[in-house]
Design a protein around this nucleic acid. Structure first.
Lengths: 258, 258
DNA sequence: AAACCACTTACTATAATAGTAAACAGATTT
DNA sequence: AAATCTGTTTACTATTATAGTAAGTGGTTT
């Protein structure tokens, strides 16, 4: 990351945005104290920031419990941000077509400052119990992360792989770096990565990298997700690997190379 | 709107959010000076706020022109906000089913502090030249606005109707309040509203209110949009009015009454 | 090469925020 | 019904961040 001008940085704005980021499908409501604890921020400061969002309609406060939820303005902003990003508008019809045709959960992420940033997703009505975070640094235990790492230049890969915690998330998590490098080698040969319940028990996925047209550098990735009640990983791979790679290739054509 | 505590209000946060709100599909890029002029804010202050967003990855700066665009973090936040709002997750499958089946542009909005706030939309690949704003106070020249106004209690309707500008947006805009009240009477009888190119030439729509289950108060609305090259308004109405009303009714069942 | 334009930086008066502590409200227990 | 507890809201000020002016910088056009 380039050294930047920390004098011209609005701290209040950063804190506010961090608070807004706490709210997602897994954590739809927060109390003041919870936010204060999580942000390691003074209660009064949180109160001021939260109150600002409430007045603007981005958060709503339950009258009795005082718990906070997202408000309509936040959702409108969400829509606006989503469709204001050119890349999303380009990939949307391509992803939707596959989503409608096969009725599978699909996620598209960009690789941005060593994180995978989710820019588009479609879910099946079959709601999963837990959703991945919109911005994730966990690259060792997701098919998305592995698909990107596998196609990174050796130097960069080494640097990032060594930064992974390899913490055990489930029975099947890969917890040592040598096994991990072996797995990545298979990803390279296959052209796509698998997630065999390595992140959360019951959650399986296949993911292919989105490679820059000119550079072949991984710009992001595409993943199809399912659960073990619906498919075994083998079935899922047999059924969708070709579709996955084909769609990833199509996405490469519309995502601008950086 | 209830009187609120203006002492506990973070102005910097408000300004930052207002800047983020400038970016949408119609205005995907802004220069510093443009933002400064539009926000009526000092250039240096805008620089600080924008720089904050750039460092956090919410905005990106074109290296040469210095023009600003949304960044991946903004899109991830967008997705997160969208799916972190319970109501969106409830209406999503219902709307998507109709969108997939008929391939039409659909918008769902909530009526919140006298504005229509767009909380979900699906577009056809046939991209329209201009998209409605995510938060709109224009109720007199959109089918969405009319569908909601028509079902408001008389007092509230009067108040809001008189606040409309009735400015001419196109040849067919309704520009006086008496004609408008007549139109609303038809909306009531029909159960849904029409937009016959009243907002922008070439843009047509039909919209039905989403009424509270208990209260029958309009909580928001559902609209189907098209363009004159694709359909005449009569055709569009004949083809989709029944589907529209049916979907609006289904949405009423899942949107919580306030 | 000069002029222009927009962005960036330096600097300080002013205004906003952080943090402490106390008051308050609602829920639960005695 | 009073007492206690938990979490939210308000009052108050020292400290810190921001607004605004003005000067500097770096491309682009003439």
């Amino acid at each position: 990351m380039p050294e930047v001008n920390r004098d011209y940085f609005a701290k209040t704005l950063e804190k506010g945005i961090r608070i807004l980021n706490l709210f997602d499908a897994n954590h739809p409501s927060w109390s003041l104290t919870e936010i204060s604890a999580r942000m390691e921020l003074n209660l009064t400061s949180v109160y001021r920031l939260v109150n600002t969002f409430v007045e603007l309609g981005y958060l709503m406060k339950e009258p009795k419990s005082k718990r906070l939820h997202l408000g309509p303005m936040a959702v409108a902003l969400g829509n606006q941000l989503l469709h204001g990003f050119d890349t999303v508008r380009l990939i949307e019809p391509l992803v939707d077509e596959i989503h409608c045709r096969y009725n599978i959960s699909i996620e598209v992420s960009l690789f941005h400052s060593n994180c995978l940033v989710q820019i588009y997703k479609r879910e099946t009505s079959n709601t999963l119990t837990y959703r991945l975070e919109a911005v994730s640094e966990l690259l060792y235990c997701t098919s998305s992360g592995k698909s990107v790492l596998a196609f990174l230049p050796a130097e960069k890969l080494k640097h990032l792989a060594e930064a992974q915690s390899f913490a055990r998330r489930s029975e099947k998590t890969i917890t040592n770096i040598d096994a991990f490098y072996e797995d990545l080698e298979q990803v390279r040969q296959r052209g796509y990565a698998l997630n065999n319940e390595e992140y959360i028990k019951g959650l399986i996925a296949i993911a292919a990298p989105i490679l820059g047209r000119g550079t072949s550098y991984p710009l992001g990735c595409l993943s199809f997700n399912s659960t073990t009640p619906d498919h075994t990983l083998d079935e899922f791979e047999d059924k969708y690997a070709v579709v996955l790679c084909e769609l990833a290739r199509k996405l490469s054509e519309v995502i601008p190379d950086v």
